[in-house]
């Protein structure tokens, strides 16, 4: 199914449209709410454990902080973390994988492949936790952990794609035409590898958002009092039976974001992966 509303530059199917709308809503709220809110997301601004309504739309937590402001301040952090946690490994992994897939130096390619396979053999979250434990928790530690592990996924995809491309007629044609290896890599291999890794990157975004939250929930991620969805959920779980709003609102925001991105990824990835 293809529909092209006039205001959109690309064809999007229904799943992608719904997903894009949700993601856009989360982004807009995450940018605007912390800016416009009268409350400081990290300071007590009212009575503790106030129910939603009136002054505090989503209520307040056990320290009297406004849950509404915190939820969207957390959104900003989580989205930025996920964006960096996806795009940096995407760039590095794609480039490296493409080089490995096309190099003639078998020994170097083999050594790199060992490293990639070793990283990929570990469960994603476990390895990130291990690295965060070494580097120390916090935003920086989290980013280092994500980047150090995640690039290997992209490199694996890029490499196998490049191995196929290497024997495609249009790449052989570049050899007949005597193009330099750099030109072939940049103009012919990479543009065709990117389409594949970007498709994975979209679905990976969900995994990374959830990983960031899970790690913070476990205390291995963002440090308090910085608002973060996973950390907020962890904060509220003692009060879940009585003051449900502390947990439920960041939980809803996280779920909505994950669903939105998943829908968007599902709808858009066909454009990239399905193309010949």
């Amino acid at each position: 199914m293809k529909r092209r509303p006039r205001f959109l530059p690309v064809d999007l199917n229904r799943s992608a449209l719904v997903g894009a709308a949700i993601v856009l809503l989360v982004i807009v709220l995450s940018v605007l709410v912390p800016l416009l809110s009268p409350y400081d997301p990290v300071a007590a601004t009212g009575p503790a454990l106030a129910a939603p309504g009136g002054q505090h739309l989503f209520g307040t937590d056990q320290l009297g902080r406004d849950v509404f402001t915190r939820t969207f301040a957390a959104g900003r952090l989580d989205l930025i973390l996920a964006l960096v946690g996806v795009s940096a490994p995407l760039l590095v992994g794609t480039f490296l994988g493409a080089v490995l897939g096309t190099t003639r130096n078998r020994l170097v390619a083999w050594l790199w492949l060992m490293v990639i396979d070793a990283i990929n053999a570990f469960p994603f979250v476990v390895l990130v936790i291990a690295i965060v434990a070494v580097v120390g928790p916090g935003v920086t530690g989290l980013l280092i952990g994500l980047a150090a592990v995640n690039w290997a996924r992209y490199a694996r995809i890029a490499r196998s794609r490049a191995l196929i491309l290497r024997n495609a007629d249009f790449v052989e044609a570049t050899r007949v035409l005597g193009y330099s290896r750099l030109r072939v890599l940049v103009r012919h291999i990479l543009p065709n590898v990117y389409s594949e890794t970007i498709a994975y990157g979209l679905s990976d975004f969900v995994i990374v958002v959830l990983t960031v939250s899970s790690l913070s929930f476990l205390g291995a991620g963002v440090n308090p009092p910085t608002p973060e969805w996973g950390a907020m959920i962890a904060d509220g779980r003692l009060y879940l039976q009585t003051q449900w709003w502390i947990t439920v609102f960041p939980g809803l925001a996280l779920s909505f974001t994950a669903i939105g991105v998943a829908l968007l990824a599902h709808g858009v990835s066909g454009r990239y992966a399905g193309e010949k």
Binding site: D169, V176, G178, S195
Partner: peptide
């Protein structure tokens, strides 16, 4: 290399799918 050029059998794989027709020629 320029002296001997080749046209491949399969027109569906002999052109870079991410390059416009003129661009492939202009590059050479």
């Amino acid at each position: 290399r320029w002296k001997v050029q080749m046209v491949f059998q399969d027109p569906y794989s002999s052109l870079n799918p991410r390059m416009r027709a003129w661009s492939a020629v202009a590059e050479a």
